[in-house]
Design a protein around this nucleic acid. Structure first.
Lengths: 231, 231
DNA sequence: TAGTGAATCTCGATC
DNA sequence: GATCGAGGTTCACTA
């Protein structure tokens, strides 16, 4: 990992064209050749970057660039596409290289998968008398998050999202259309379950006869904790 | 901007829980207090991070942590949520601070907006005799990218994407349903225009009577250049 | 390898 | 501030 602080300009051309005016920035060159240009703010996204696989060629500036004060040019070329990042360095304020080694990587726990597991365990959240048929119930266009039965013996297809957007309603609608073609299952009711359901999504869902359930993640996790202590 | 290279572990808890085992990493502390942990590979996304607004508190390790070799603890707390990142530093290999100043920011050029402008200018790409009604034609659920008339006087609603995914077909379907309720416009035909149309999106579109048009960005830009030279 | 869906998405425009 | 759509999305998983 090479860490450089420099006054620089940059030009990116690829899926779009973008320009960074002259300013002092952090330049990172990673072991795989990728390059990141960061400012002293914003989020984790760099101002500009080049993803691997790519190669960095350090060049001497042309006469015109030299006249503008450029002392060094980094030409970063993507290996497979014609994406290209050209950084013109005016002044290097810091330059150091560090051996980091391979990273063991991030270990994650719990997102939508966790919500799905919790709801499968606590399927009565859908209403008394509901029973789980199975998680990831397969259909021709992909698995439905949860298939359940209501007390009357009717099928219930559940789509789970962390944030209930309009897309999830469309997704569930496609599943329902398919599932309702199966005489063994039909009629299949739809339930849209999310930690938070956007107003537009709720309107669309209810317009299509899909009921909405807001999941309380902390409460469900709390019940889960209690259960795991008991059993 | 503070740049630190250190052997460290990290724990994030917030919207999910994640752990980073002991390894040597780059730690960045930006002027707004945000923290980024980068490995020597991957993309521009850090292994872990804390977005602003947040505050960094440097603490001395407890007895248990000290026994594990921790020399310093960074507790990064988000100002508004309960997101929290705890970094346990075992060994600091580099530590420097740099004044970067405000960044003038990125100047972008050309994406979907450009495609829309080009297609509006070259509406005959849809077929001879087509005329533009207007860009961003308003509907109750948002503006349609382009509304046009075909030679027979029928309305044509155009949805433009850079990459034609299934989502765009759903979006256009919703627009068409609404537009077709308007007796002044009905019947409205749908056209899905993109630089690249995914097979599944094409199948769904054609199943719904929506025609697909693949846009040649370079060719359209070329025509545009010629036109701008001529006029 | 291509396609699909999620993301601690981020970012910008618009209401 | 909330919402919605786009992204040089990136990332992980799967057929």
């Amino acid at each position: 990992m090479r860490v450089v602080i420099a006054r620089c300009e940059a030009l990116y051309s690829g899926r779009l064209t973008a320009r960074l005016p002259l300013a002092t920035r952090l330049l990172l060159v990673k072991a795989d050749g990728s390059v990141l240009l960061h400012s002293d703010g914003g989020s984790y996204k760099p101002l500009n970057w080049m993803s691997p696989p790519c190669s960095l060629a350090v060049q001497t500036p042309g006469a015109e660039a030299e006249a503008r004060g450029v002392t060094e040019v980094w030409a970063v070329q993507h290996a497979k596409s014609d994406d290209r990042l050209v950084v013109e360095l005016h002044e290097v304020l810091h330059d150091s290289v560090h051996e980091l080694g391979l990273d063991p990587g991030l270990v994650k726990d719990g997102v939508e998968a966790h919500l799905q597991a919790l709801l499968a365990e606590q399927i009565e959240v859908l209403g008394d008398g509901h029973t789980l048929v199975r998680r990831e119930f397969p259909t021709a266009i992909g698995p439905v998050d949860i298939l359940a039965k209501d007390p009357a013996g009717g099928s219930v297809a559940v789509e789970i999202k962390r944030r209930g957007d309009i897309d999830g309603v469309e997704q569930l609608t496609r599943y329902l259309e398919l599932l309702n073609r199966d005489p063994h299952l039909s009629p299949v009711r739809g339930v849209y379950a999310a930690q938070e359901i956007k107003p537009q999504a709720r309107v669309l869902a209810e317009d299509r006869g899909i009921s909405c359930v807001v999941l309380d993640y902390d409460a469900m996790r709390g019940v889960d904790d209690v259960e795991s202590r008991l059993f």
